[in-house]
Amino acid sequence: MSNSFKDMLPKQKASTKVKRNVLLDVKFIKYTIEVSEYYLLKYPKTITHFFNKK
């Protein structure tokens, strides 16, 4: 499977600002997942309480 973006712009590179923003977004997503996993492991009944609410 080839990368179609490299075919469109073979000589272009992303600027450092774009790279930094993407890495910050990835880091934010990673931390969000870690916090949610910790919360569900520490308090496993919270998810069932949340979904069983009527």
Rank of each mutant, 00 (worst) to 15 (best):
S15M: 04
N21V: 04
K54Y: 09
T46Y: 04
K42C: 03
K30I: 11
F51Q: 02
Y31G: 14
P44H: 03
T16C: 07
L24I: 07
V35S: 14
L24T: 03
V18A: 06
P44G: 00
L41G: 00
F28Q: 12
V35L: 09
S36F: 08
A14L: 10
T32F: 13
Y43L: 01
Y43F: 01
V18K: 04
K19C: 05
R20D: 13
V35A: 14
S15Q: 01
N52W: 02
H49C: 07
P44L: 00
I33D: 09
V22H: 07
L23N: 15
L23F: 13
L41S: 11
K17Y: 04
L24D: 10
Y43G: 00
Y39V: 14
R20Q: 12
K54W: 02
L41P: 02
K30W: 09
V35H: 07
K13S: 11
A14H: 02
F50T: 01
K19G: 10
K30E: 08
K42A: 05
Q12L: 15
S36V: 15
T46P: 02
R20G: 11
Q12I: 13
Q12P: 06
S15E: 01
K27Y: 10
I29R: 10
L40P: 07
Y31K: 13
K53T: 08
E34W: 07
V35P: 02
E34Q: 13
H49S: 12
F28R: 14
Y38L: 06
